[in-house]
Nucleic acid binder design. Structure first.
Lengths: 133, 133
DNA sequence: CTTGCTGCAAAGGTTTTGCATTGTT
DNA sequence: AACAATGCAAAACCTTTGCAGCAAG
């Protein structure tokens, strides 16, 4: 039996901290850009590897929009509001007792592990821009 | 003022027909493969262009999973069950009166156009395979 | 020391785009 | 005849991977 011991590195720490600090959900490239301010020599490959590992361990969620993967370090079940104009993804915290009913109804398809609710629209910032125009 | 008149082509028709006929949600590549049986000389670029146009017009939805875009020609609000093993996406039609409440709660973020509920798990087929193994 | 992790560059995959040609209208 | 749509190939993306060197334990 082989046991891989994970090592704590500067890069991992800064990426995790960054994900915790933001309330939108950046793509790997956005994380890369942000983290580079603190670690100028970090590589994009490392960002991808760290994010992937976080997802595997359950420390982060991957959510997809328009073919790009976004990362979300909050693992509790919550909703997302996705702006169709600027692409930003916001967290929405509301209680969802009714969703448990959905789960039971959809069980005929297989075993359900989790669910995700996305709301699509135009965020306030983009609405303002439109009005200004 | 320039008005672009859309033309109806063989390619568009066959792609639309195909999307209507399936109940999972294929990627562009999968559409390409299927449509090629009827139109052997169609190009992948055309498939991408047609699918993109359909989305723009609202005739189709784009949903993303693991960095790939899947297409769904049903525009009514319904749920998706996504198999985390084989990647197939199934439609789930259940009434969701409770979701309307969510919409109103999330309106502080902006104007909401639509919502999407995804259930993640393992589909029956894959469950069977696992048991057999 | 050992070996997991990183940076770099190259490779792999999906999606988009430029352009000559085709086919609707 | 106009010009939107196509096919082809190249380009532009995003993401993964191989490998030598670095650094955490």
């Amino acid at each position: 039996m082989i046991i891989n011991k994970e090592r704590s590195t500067h890069q991992k720490k800064i990426i995790a901290d960054y994900l915790q600090s933001v309330d939108t959900h950046p793509t790997a490239k956005q994380v890369y850009k942000a983290v580079k301010k603190k670690l100028p020599y970090i590589s994009l490959a490392t960002v991808y590897r760290v994010l992937k590992n976080m997802s595997k361990k359950g420390d982060s969620l991957q959510l997809s929009y328009k073919g790009e993967i976004h990362f979300d370090a909050r693992t509790s079940n919550h909703l997302h509001f996705i702006c169709q104009q600027c692409g930003k993804i916001y967290d929405v915290f509301v209680s969802t007792p009714s969703l448990d009913k959905l789960e039971s109804k959809a069980q005929k398809f297989g075993k359900i592990n989790s669910y995700k609710v996305n709301l699509y629209g135009i965020c306030k910032k983009c609405l303002k821009k439109r009005r200004a125009h």
